[in-house]
Structure formats: C-alpha cells, structure tokens
Design a protein around this nucleic acid. Structure first.
Lengths: 332, 332
DNA sequence: GGGATTACTGTGCACGTTCACAGAAGATTT
DNA sequence: AAATCTTCTGTGAACGTGCACAGTAATCCC
C-alpha cells in the first residue's frame, strides 16, 4: 500500500539507512555484499527515492525551469521552440533532471515565475526569447540559481551566458548572395527590434548594403506569419520596384510569399525571397525557401552545456556564437 | 541570506506557525488582525512556501507531467503539440500547478517516466500521442495518480479518459466533399495504424466510399512530412488515374503536395488534396490546404478539465468527443 | 607489535511544512 | 448562571532523506 521508504529497503537488505543512502548517491564506501543486497531489496520493494525529502535536506530540486517569454497568443507559433524543448528534455534526462515549463507572457505570469525561482523550486533557469528590458531578468537578478539563455538577452549579454547563431554573419550571407545575383533593390523585413535576431540581422544586412539600405526598403515584423505578410504589403507599396527581400525568419517569409503571390509577383523571377532559420516551414512553402540555416539543435546543446557548467559550480562561462550557413532552394 | 521560512513569517507577524499555515492554505479560521499582520510579514520577508517540505507531508507535488510518446527524431515535428503545451501550461498555472515534460521515446525513457510517476513525483499524468500497445500505459497501471490523454489511447479507451476530435466525422466530411465535387478515384494517405487518428480517419473514409475504397488507393504514413511525400509517390505509381487524395494530416499533405508537384500534377485541377488538422502548415503550403479543422485548443482544454475533475476526486469521468469542421481553401 | 591508514557501517539531527489536537476567549443557547 | 457552540490560536509529531560524526574491523608500515 504505502510507498516503500529508504528504511524499508535498509531493513530488507539488512543494513542501515546510511548505507542505502550512500549507494544511492554514489559514495564509494559500500561493500560488495551490501551492494548486491541493497540492489535486490530495491528492486524487490520497488523503491523510488522521494525527491521532496531529498530536496528538503540538499536544498536542490532536481529540476530546471524553461521560461518562455512570449505573449500567449504567439507563443509556439514558431516551430523552432520544439527543437529547444526536445534537446533540453533529452540532455536534462541524462542528468536525471526534469524540465518544468513556464510562460512569462504577462505580469501575472512573470510574478509566478519569479516566485517559483526565488522560492528555490528550480536548480537552474533556461531563458527563451527574452526581449530587451524584460523586467523578469532584473527580478531574477543575482542570488538565485544560475540562468542561461538560448540567444543573447539584450542588455544582459555579460550577465546571462548564452549560445546563439552568428546573426550578423547569416544576414550578410543572404544579402551578399542577393548582390552576387545582381539584385538591385534589396528590401528587408526584420524581426522585433528588441530581440537580438531583430537587431543584428538588420545590422548584417546594412553592413553589406551600406547606404543603399534605406528606410523605405526596411519593414518590421514580430516573427509571426501574419506580420510577414503585412510587412511585405507595406514594402510593395513603398517600393514597388524592389527585386529581392530578405526576411528575418522563415515563418514571416511564408507570409511574405503569400503577399507577393497576391500582388502577382513571381518568386524568384520578379522578386527573390530569402528567409532565416531553415525551419520546417522552409520546405513546405512554394517555392521552397532559400534561407540561412541556424544550427538550432547545436545552439540548444551548447546552452545546456553552459547551464551544466554553472550547475557544476564552474566559474564564469563564455557565450558561444555559432556559424550560420546559406541554404539555396528555389525562392532566390 | 537564508531563505525565510514559515517560522520567520510567524515571528515577524507575532503569531504561530499554525496560523500562518492556515492563512496560506485558505483555512477560514484566521482573525482579520492576524491576517493583515501575516500578509505584511510575508511581503516584508519575501517568503515563498517551500514546496518540498509541503510535499513531504501532504504527499502531493503540485506538478503534472506531460508524457510525449514519440520517437525522439519526429517528436514535435507536428506543430500541434505546441497548442497542447500552451493550453496545459496556462490552465495548470491557474491552479498553481507546474508542468513537467518527459519523453517516452525509447525503453530508457519509459523506465524513467514510470519511476517518476510511481515514485509519486507527479499528481497527474497527461498522455500525448500514446500508441496502441505502448507498455507505458500498463506500467503506469492503477494505484498511481490519475492519467488522462489528448486523443484516445487505443485499447484503454475505458481506462484512460480523453478528449478527442470526432475523427470519423472529419474523415467523412472530407470524403463526402470530394464525392460532391465529382471526384471519381479518391485515394487516402493514413496515419500510423496504431493511433486513433490513423485508424478512425480511415474508417470514416471507408464508410463513405464503401467498396470503392480499395487497398490500391490506400497508403500509410507516420505523420511526418517525408512519409506523406513517400506515400503519395507510392499512390501515383499504383493508381496513376487518381483524381483526389485525402491525407490524414496537414503535415503529410504538405509532403504529398511536393510529390504531386514533382510528378507534374496540378492541384486541385488534376488532383484534389485534402488535409486534416487545420494546423499552421495548412496556410503556408501552395496552394493552401483544404482541410478538416480539429478544435485542438478545445481538446486540450477539455482534457485538462478531465484531469482536474480527477484530481478533485470526482468519480469516473466520461470521454469528450468534439465535432470537426471542413475548411475549404484552394487545394480542393 | 604498536600506530597509522583504509574500508566500511550505524545513528542522531536537521530540513520546512501540514495536520490533529488541545485549549482559550467570547458569543449564544438553555 | 451554566452549558454549549463558534472562532481563533499554539504545539508536538510526522513526512523521508542526506550529512556529519563516531565507531569498528582489517590491513599496512616501520
């Protein structure tokens, strides 16, 4: 009936609690005889360690919380999150840590997250898509468990370690590709200007085009497909003669394609379209997207590695920036 | 330095632990004076209840685990998961429960999940995409915390409550639509035949077509885009004269569109394509997919409601089956 | 053969909370 | 005025674990 405790295991194995505890926690001083007796007792009783009791004394929880800082309605529209979650679950499982998910879309959410983290309910924090100036970051502050981020947190680059793609490099690759192809009027649809992907992809674009990157050729989206469509319409109105557009995410690029189609422009003949991410949508659009591959799984892995280093008490860790790659398909 | 405990709050408020505990747990017997004193003490000290200590005595954990039963590599390819996670997080947060994510892709994973759940580390289990015959379901068995599923668990329909779309109805709607349009050779790409979506969507299809639904017009996929493409090629080879295909998921339909395009068939002129889900991909394909809308958010909500009912100790609960709806776009 | 080292084991305490219980003070009924 | 009920409060015990400590036996070193 009742769940077996470490006492029960100890009794069944004919040893004391301490010895069982030592075996469980990998202490080297356990005799071979005790070892087999305990292992048999564990499997016979079906004993599973009680994490609550353990937490109480160790002050650790065995879990890491992933904080998703997006407004509820657009959360997860981007399939990229899936990769992060998958990698995080897998790598945490290897250390017998579990993943708790929380949203930080509004003030109430944020308060809950802060209470949770400051209350000591997580050993580590995994920040995802945190925008510049998010009060959450300040609130988590220091003194709490270690925090890392997938992609930089603007304004906290030196405080919160991260692994990210080389956003500028990717933007340059795509823009240079357009230039090599002889495109003359190259426009851009950026992400939100309070995210690193929003800012730095625009910077890379501007670096290549110099003064040719005028305001009239730049429109802003918010990563959603709908915003990509809207921004494309805006650009077509402002600069009907554009012959290429670099869109800062595949999902927004899918929206842009729809707007171009509606406007009767052929892709890539009239207008070349370049995306960013190389996510699942890149191959389901028509035409398939020429895009910048962001090594998302690798980014997630590196982020987890940073977190593990901090959990293991390593000193300050360095951010990791990973190279991107141009993937040519049919849209450009 | 040290995190404040309930003792500290009690001392600061000039009452005893018991009174603070009563306030925290909503007991009605707390005097107004004590109430304000405690509330001030809580905010002054920044007290947050220690869940581990609470769990130890209440035998509850304050968390629910979502178990994703897909092989790692295809996990999350389908954007539908995102909706489930979003709804689950939100509804759990309202009850101050947290969501723990686990994968059950291989034997090691499953063992971990069983240990976790049987070890009493979750108050409830949320099954997602559990295939027929999954040993996990047996292993969780009875005696553990309540479990519910999004979509039926084949072979356990009467054991594990679920909320699902009316799969057969959806399949009939699409097939009847094809028939009304005068399509003559209607094919189908199913999902895996150990999932309710795989089986029941085929059943609905067959109910409408009767003996016209021959083996030559039926191919099987595994929900992935690649499998949809492969199945479509297979069908085109076996039955080159088909003029419509009902694909059991939007993602597979995107794959089918690619195969049709490669084969030089025009959609919908030569071949009408119908999807299922009305997920995000349905609008990013070209042409946009005519599909069956599955009320996913509602399904997730209802599933959570079932779980809450069980957590609240309600007796046996009834499964919920929700109607689907035909969404006509341009692929059919 | 005496002292030091190594390998291993058992025990008491603390972690922070909830719950059952006992009891006090005031209000209400008999 | 006594008895009962209601409202509110404090206290001790228990939840299951890890850790520090003390202690035992065997081995080793000179």
């Amino acid at each position: 009936m009742k769940r077996p405790t470490i006492h029960d295991v100890a009794a069944a194995a004919g040893v004391s609690r301490g010895t069982v505890s030592r075996l469980l926690n990998g202490d080297k001083y356990v005799s071979p005889a005790a070892r087999v007796a305990i292992e048999r007792a564990i499997s016979e009783t079906g004993y599973v360690v009680n994490r609550a009791a353990r937490s109480l004394v160790t002050q650790r929880t065995g879990s890491v919380v992933m904080v998703l800082s997006e407004p509820h309605e657009k959360l997860f529209e981007d399939p990229n999150y899936s990769t992060l979650i998958r990698v995080a679950i897998r790598m945490l499982a290897e250390r017998d840590l579990s993943l708790v998910m929380m949203m930080a879309g509004d003030e109430g959410d944020r308060e809950r997250v802060v209470r949770y983290v400051r209350g000591g309910h997580a050993d580590g924090v995994l920040l995802v898509s945190t925008h510049a100036g998010d009060p959450l970051v300040e609130a988590l502050g220091s003194g709490g468990p270690p925090a890392v981020s997938v992609g930089a947190v603007i304004g906290h680059e030196n405080v919160i370690p991260y692994a990210a793609a080389d956003e500028r490099m990717g933007a340059r690759q795509m823009t240079e590709y357009f230039v090599r192809q002889g495109r003359r009027r190259i426009a851009m649809i950026t992400g939100p200007m309070d995210t690193p992907g929003g800012i730095q992809r625009l910077e890379g674009f501007a670096e290549v085009l110099g003064r040719k990157a005028t305001q009239r050729l730049i429109a802003h989206g918010d990563w959603t497909q709908a915003s990509g469509e809207r921004a494309m319409r805006e650009l077509l109105e402002r600069s009907p003669d554009l012959d290429a557009v670099f869109v800062a995410s595949d999902l927004m690029a899918a929206g842009a394609l729809a707007a171009l189609r509606a406007a009767g422009r052929r892709v890539p003949d009239d207008v070349a379209v370049g995306g960013f991410d190389d996510s699942a949508v890149a191959v389901s659009t028509h035409p398939p997207l020429t895009t910048i591959r962001q090594p998302l799984a690798k980014m997630a892995q590196e982020t987890m590695r940073l977190l593990f280093a901090l959990l293991d008490g390593a000193g300050p860790v360095e951010p990791v920036v990973l190279p991107t790659e141009l993937v040519v398909r049919e849209s450009a």
